[in-house]
Simulated scan of single mutants.
Amino acid sequence: MLPGLDVTDVLDDPDFQDTSLRVFCTALDPRADGTVTAVGGWQDFTGVVSPDGGRDLVQLGEGDALDGAITIYTRFPLSTGGLERAADRIQWGNGGPGTYTVVNAQPWQFGDGYVKALCKLADNNPSETEPPDGYLG
């Protein structure tokens, strides 16, 4: 590790910022009858995206599927979810190849105020108007 390393100047540079990012944040509201109401919507945000190994073809007995991941460095508070919030879903590349689920999000030690979020490919056919698959609403 490099103590004191701060790369916020690079991460804040518009040449590195990706403006095609969208997040679907979902608030969960438990009801007295044990069901949960989910309310959410798409929001635009910016960050620096790094593909993690590209998209891999996975061949299973049930059929073929794509697997992949990206890492996002952003000031937007991405979340893996909890009792009051579902894991955030990400669209990258103007609705491009699919949606990603945030599977790990933590403060990043090399950029003050930045979150480092690992996102796994979740849906290969996203919709601009409909909530992503797995939406509880």
Score class of each variant (00 low, 15 high):
132 P>G: 09
132 P>A: 08
74 T>F: 08
101 T>H: 01
88 D>R: 01
23 V>A: 14
12 D>P: 01
125 N>Q: 14
104 N>Q: 14
21 L>T: 10
28 L>F: 03
21 L>A: 10
57 L>D: 10
62 E>W: 07
86 A>K: 04
40 G>Q: 02
34 G>A: 03
32 A>K: 05
108 W>N: 13
127 S>G: 14
130 E>V: 04
41 G>V: 04
83 L>T: 09
58 V>I: 14
91 Q>E: 14
92 W>A: 13
9 D>Q: 07
29 D>E: 14
21 L>E: 08
44 D>K: 07
102 V>C: 13
48 V>M: 13
18 D>W: 02
38 A>H: 08
127 S>M: 02
116 K>V: 12
22 R>F: 05
75 R>M: 11
59 Q>T: 15
99 T>P: 09
74 T>D: 05
118 L>K: 15
96 G>Y: 04
74 T>P: 04
16 F>E: 10
29 D>F: 14
24 F>S: 05
63 G>E: 10
31 R>I: 00
99 T>G: 09
14 P>A: 07
110 F>K: 07
25 C>D: 12
108 W>S: 07
51 P>W: 06
21 L>I: 10
92 W>Q: 05
87 A>W: 07
129 T>D: 15
55 R>H: 02
1 M>F: 10
27 A>K: 09
3 P>E: 07
26 T>C: 12
55 R>G: 00
32 A>W: 00
32 A>Y: 08
28 L>Q: 11
126 P>K: 06
1 M>L: 12
130 E>I: 00
24 F>H: 11
31 R>W: 00
116 K>M: 14
130 E>T: 11
72 I>S: 05
26 T>N: 05
87 A>P: 09
30 P>V: 01
129 T>R: 13
34 G>T: 02
31 R>A: 12
136 L>M: 09
65 A>W: 00
80 T>N: 02
54 G>M: 04
78 L>S: 06
20 S>H: 11
84 E>V: 12
82 G>S: 03
69 A>V: 01
63 G>T: 11
66 L>T: 04
26 T>A: 09
117 A>Y: 10
15 D>C: 01
77 P>M: 03
81 G>C: 07
16 F>P: 01
16 F>W: 15
37 T>G: 02
113 G>A: 08
101 T>A: 11
99 T>E: 08
111 G>C: 08
57 L>E: 13
98 G>W: 00
35 T>N: 13
59 Q>P: 00
67 D>A: 15
113 G>D: 06
16 F>I: 00
68 G>M: 02
58 V>Q: 12
131 P>T: 06
126 P>G: 08
67 D>M: 03
